[in-house]
Design a binder for these strands. Structure first.
Lengths: 152, 152
DNA sequence: AGTCATTAGTTTAATACTAAACTTAAGTAG
DNA sequence: CTACTTAAGTTTAGTATTAAACTAATGACT
């Protein structure tokens, strides 16, 4: 073993593993997103809109920037998503000084009640191949990756 | 009103873990893609184009459908990606009967030599927060998820 | 007050990706 | 040969997403 090697010069073996990991993760992510989109069609929602619904529905006085941060997307993306969802009558934007605070409309709240439990169950079921212990392990490993990523 | 049947609370716990997992995975995926896109700017390539370059460069007589399967995207997506890359002079499409076989042009091969090793290293480095043992473990867990996913 | 930096959100132009409908070529069965 | 089916690729219309440039409000510093 070579603990002396610097972090940025990976061994060939480590590099191969990293690539395999990347490949697996993309595959799982893409598959999940696709399945979620299919599942959400029942309610005429997309996965992205669902994510907004969840966040706005479960936080008071969320600003657009905060929402963007929670979802790890750009604020430009949020602007566009929200315009659509405002049109659909799900979301309200209330300006207060510089900031627009978000909340669900009555219709949005109803949809939230209806769809969130079902969709969460569906999404969680993607990981039903693992038992509780394995999920915890996986979560731990993913956290480590993110921790590192953040610093770069 | 505490509904404390063992099974019920266990599955609730599992559901929470599943959601956390989904959230972590999206975040890691999105972050990685974004960083890859940035890194690939040097060569005026996108992450999607890079993936095509790798696959076409390392397989003989790949059809478009096969490429789509390898990358887990739709063939419609592939058609569009390839049109662009053909225009850029990186890829050749040769029709034989019903099928179009793909290969790199001279320019494509040069780019392949130049960019693939560097980008692979970059991509693998996203997982440098884990040691070799942990990577293997993670890979194992992801494989299990995929295995289950495929069946649904 | 006047200038400068920061912050929230919007706009724009581009790529990526999907689902679904479509076209065309083969392969198969009567 | 005609009709049906399947397979490869294309097209279309729509969403998602980004980066970068922009607008406008806020707040400091001098």
């Amino acid at each position: 073993m070579k603990e002396s090697s610097k972090e940025w010069s990976l061994s060939k073996q480590d590099e191969r593993l990293g690539l395999l990991l990347w490949f697996r993760i993309s595959r799982i992510y893409n598959q999940s997103i696709r399945q979620s989109n299919q599942h959400l069609k029942k309610w005429e929602l997309s996965a992205a809109q669902f994510d907004v619904l969840v966040q706005v529905g479960s936080h008071e006085r969320l600003s657009q920037q905060e929402l963007a941060d929670k979802l790890f997307v750009t604020k430009g993306n949020i602007t566009q998503l929200l315009s659509k969802m405002e049109q659909m009558g799900l979301i309200k934007r209330e300006q207060e000084w510089k900031t627009k605070y978000l909340s669900l409309t009555e219709k949005g709240r109803e949809l939230f009640q209806e769809v969130v439990p079902q969709q969460e169950q569906f999404q969680a079921a993607q990981f039903s191949g693992l038992d509780e212990e394995e999920k915890k392990q996986l979560l731990q490993l993913l956290r480590k990756i993110q921790h590192k990523q953040r610093k770069e």
